[in-house]
Amino acid sequence: MTALIETRDAERTFRVGRSLFQAARTLKAVNRVSLSVAKGEILGLVGESGCGKSTLAKMLLGLLEPTAGEILFAGQPLYSIPRLERARRVQPIFQDPYSSLNPRQTIAAIVSLPLRVHGVGSPTEQKKRVAEILDLVGLARRYADNYPNQLSGGQRQRVAIARALVMRPELVICDEPTSALDVSVQSQILNLLLELRKELGVTYILISHNLAVVEHLATRVAVMYLGRIVEEKDTESLFRHPEHPYTQVLLESVLTPEPGLGIPDSQLGVAFPNPIDPPSGCTFHPRCRYALPRCSTEAPVPLRTNGSLVECHLSLERAAREHRAAAAADTATGAAPQ
């Protein structure tokens, strides 16, 4: 299956901190990320604030060109696709439905804007499309002439979803789509996203710090730390066998509603490192409970095994050991047929 969107060593650096007394320094927000999302998948992107997930989202949306590497959309360089076409095929849903909707426009005007921009259909047809999409996202048609401030948070997020989907995009990037919502509303929006995927066959990239939400929705999960993807796997195995120490800590920190378990002690230390001045070697080593001497000097190379990725010296060493053991077993049995 070909990838719908693919990044190849995509990198984004920013020049920051230039002042009278200081030369500008380079911040690598996204550091040589190679990622591929197949059609119909839901890729969950998790990590702490400042890890670069929102920068990566902007790059995938076509809003921020990579400073190095490339991004391919359906096999074509994303940034060679004309801006309008890009906007038709990739759409965002943002966290805060209070600030992502224009307060001076009616719901109908907000949802039909993409249709008008792309010049799709006559005003009557546009009206019909808006009504259809409002039905689809579960918002009563009578709201069409209302303004965003007359709607609740959950309803506004439905409007944002309707606007994103009205052009039937192939990829929707959801940046914390439910973080601003109450739990009972969150579940409605998550259910809606799942339904729409079935209905329209859209592919999602879901950015969230809520791992329970990611576990519920995503088919694959990528864990980001300081601009790198440190682990990527299908959801099932990531949650069952987290390999990277950082993934393990993240999963341990999830507070499931099970009384009596207490608060987990991740022993992570407070400090999220300064991305301008990242630690040497493996960038996670100052906070890692298993750090080896070599972790502070040598950056681990990504280890890819049947569709999963992990970037950690421990995994590399384990793989090397297993490889040696397998080789030894082979020589012991001679060239015995399998």
Partner: peptide, 8 residues
């Protein structure tokens, strides 16, 4: 706050 910091 982030989940890791929240737990702490």
């Amino acid at each position: 706050l982030d989940v890791t910091i929240q737990a702490q």
